[in-house]
Amino acid sequence: MNVFRIAGDISHLASIFILIHQITITKSVQGISFKTQLLYSIVFITRYLDVTFRWVSLYIFAMKLFFIASSLYIIFLMRNRFRTSEVTKLDTFPIVYLLAGSGVLALIFTYDYSITEVLWAFSLFLESVAILPQLFMLQRTGQAKTLTTHYIFALGLYRALYIPNWFYRYFAEGRFDTLAVFTGIVQTLIYSDFFWVYYNRVMKGLNFELP
């Protein structure tokens, strides 16, 4: 474990706590894309299936369970506790294309034709684009609550921090996971516009508003 990976994982945990905190204190899911949350649940379930048969470490085991459970809890909060029709109207990104595209790419680029490997590759492609419905929603409304922007920032930071982690692992361990690195860079690039606006407005104490 290196510092980039630990910092990335902490940032990922923070993003989830920020989101749950926001939903529970405001008792509202306004501005949060259900579709993005649904995609993350699918990402975690398809990627962490191996928690049942592959032991890496207690850390990895606990984190995998946490990510699966918290994503399902968020889905539950959004669907059953604080559901509103206004939110659904703005959440219109056609995720079927993301799912289908990730499926096709996983079948082409998987390292091995086993169910778990194809699902693992699928989860990487899907994660790289899972934030798009959320960013699309932000684009439509033109502004966001500060907590929502902190959530998106922490989530983007997590993948951005994995990039130096992969450099480190390549030089220190000779390890290079082509699929993870490629999809991770794509994901970080998708966040780049958002990072720019976040830096220019939210970091300076202004509201998040798109020009």
Partner: peptide, 10 residues
């Protein structure tokens, strides 16, 4: 690359 099949990251 055999170690690519061992997924030890989140």
């Amino acid at each position: 690359n055999a170690n690519q099949l061992f997924h030890d990251e989140l």
